[in-house]
Amino acid sequence: MRELVYYIAVSIDGHIAAPDGAFDRFLMEGDHAPQLTEEFADAIPGVLLDAMGVRAPLTRFDTVIMGWDTYTLDPSNPNPYPHLRQIVASSREREVHEGIEVTSDPVARVRESKAEDGAGIYLCGGGGLAGTLIEEIDRLVLKRNPLAFGDGTPLFGHAPYRPVRFDPVGVRVFGSGVVVEEYVRAPEEAA
């Protein structure tokens, strides 16, 4: 069965974006960047892959799910992950680039995707969608940046209180100050 992986940059106080949705304060350069770029190339938008002259290996992910705000982050790029099957979660009917799927039921859609053969499913964002999907997330890969935002978009949006346990399986500390924390859903939490 495929995993739903929430791979995301986060501040030390648990925010994935500033109050206005910006995420440009996260460290893009440093000793963490080359390793994560190689390890998670499938999670890099197509425009950046092209600029770097890199091809996504499609070994880690072959599908991405994202919320509407994440999908429309760059209006000039209506096809952000052309190398992946793209699913956009929205409560309303929306127009998207040809070949991109819109779902109003991301939980059911993720469950269907997890039952299919293939590589992992990349949960790209945002926090509200992650909160909706928290019980479907199998793995968290948090790129914890050495910044405190104070306010902004929480890692799991404003999901209702329901503790879900994840067990730590790895921590990597980089000279840049970025700490990559990896967790898997605790066995008793698995659906």
Rank of each mutant, 00 (worst) to 15 (best):
E3N: 13
V5H: 03
D13S: 11
D13R: 08
D13N: 09
G14Y: 11
I16W: 02
A17C: 11
D20L: 13
A22L: 09
F26W: 02
F26P: 00
M28I: 14
D31F: 07
H32G: 06
H32W: 04
P34A: 15
T37K: 15
E38I: 13
E38T: 15
D42C: 08
G53F: 02
G53K: 01
A56H: 00
F61V: 04
T63Y: 06
G67L: 08
P75G: 13
S76R: 15
P78C: 09
N79V: 06
P82E: 01
P82K: 01
H83Q: 00
S91I: 14
R92D: 15
R94T: 11
R94H: 12
E101L: 10
V102E: 07
V102Y: 06
V102S: 07
P106A: 12
V107T: 15
A108C: 10
D117H: 04
D117C: 03
I121V: 11
G126F: 03
G127M: 06
G127R: 04
L129G: 11
L129N: 06
A130D: 03
G131D: 10
G131N: 11
L133D: 07
L142R: 08
N145L: 04
L147P: 00
F149W: 07
G150A: 00
L155Q: 06
F156C: 09
G157S: 11
H158Q: 14
P160G: 11
R162F: 04
V164T: 12
R165M: 13
D167I: 12
V169T: 13
G170C: 10
G170A: 14
V171R: 05
V173M: 06
G177S: 07
V178P: 02
V178S: 01
Y183I: 09
V184C: 09
